[in-house]
Lab assay of single mutants.
Amino acid sequence: MEQATVKWFNAEKGFGFIERENGDDVFVHFSAIQGDGFKSLDEGQAVTFDVEEGQRGPQAANVQKA
């Protein structure tokens, strides 16, 4: 698992990007966020996640709020 920071997340559209420590951004979809209830992330929030290869490149999976 990697630890990184949420760059931005649009709760209405259900997706955003996580900024990795190496500077690369990773796409995150609300369905990858672990937990119950409304799944959203806040800008600047610390998260841990795995990286999977998606249809359009790397994307976050198993996202957990740190």
Rank of each mutant, 00 (worst) to 15 (best):
E2W: 14
E2A: 10
Q3Y: 15
Q3D: 06
Q3A: 11
Q3F: 15
V6A: 01
V6C: 07
K7A: 04
W8S: 03
W8C: 09
F9Y: 10
F9E: 03
N10D: 11
N10H: 07
N10G: 03
A11C: 14
A11Y: 11
E12H: 12
E12I: 13
E12Y: 12
K13Q: 08
G14T: 03
G14F: 01
G16V: 03
G16A: 05
F17W: 07
F17L: 05
I18Y: 00
I18G: 01
E19S: 15
E19M: 15
E19P: 00
R20N: 06
R20D: 04
R20T: 08
E21V: 12
E21F: 10
E21H: 11
E21R: 09
D24N: 12
D24E: 13
D24G: 12
D24L: 12
D24Y: 09
D25I: 12
D25C: 14
D25F: 12
D25A: 10
F27W: 06
F27E: 01
F27T: 02
V28G: 01
V28A: 00
V28N: 02
V28P: 04
F30P: 02
S31Y: 05
S31H: 07
A32C: 07
A32W: 03
A32I: 03
I33T: 02
I33Y: 03
Q34T: 10
G35I: 09
D36H: 13
F38S: 06
F38P: 10
F38W: 14
F38G: 05
K39G: 06
S40D: 07
S40I: 11
S40G: 08
S40N: 07
L41Y: 01
E43W: 13
E43T: 15
E43D: 10
E43Q: 15
G44Y: 04
G44I: 02
G44V: 02
G44R: 05
Q45Y: 06
Q45I: 08
Q45G: 06
A46S: 13
A46N: 10
A46R: 14
V47F: 02
T48P: 02
T48V: 11
T48D: 06
F49V: 04
D50V: 15
V51W: 09
V51M: 11
E52R: 10
E52G: 07
E53H: 12
E53Q: 14
E53F: 14
E53K: 10
E53V: 14
G54H: 07
R56T: 08
R56V: 06
R56E: 06
G57I: 01
G57C: 06
G57N: 03
G57D: 02
P58A: 08
Q59E: 08
Q59M: 09
Q59F: 11
Q59G: 03
Q59A: 07
Q59C: 07
A60K: 01
A60E: 02
A60L: 01
A60T: 03
A61L: 08
N62M: 06
N62I: 04
N62P: 00
V63D: 04
V63E: 02
Q64T: 11
Q64M: 11
K65G: 09
K65C: 09
A66V: 15
A66F: 13
A66D: 10
A66C: 13
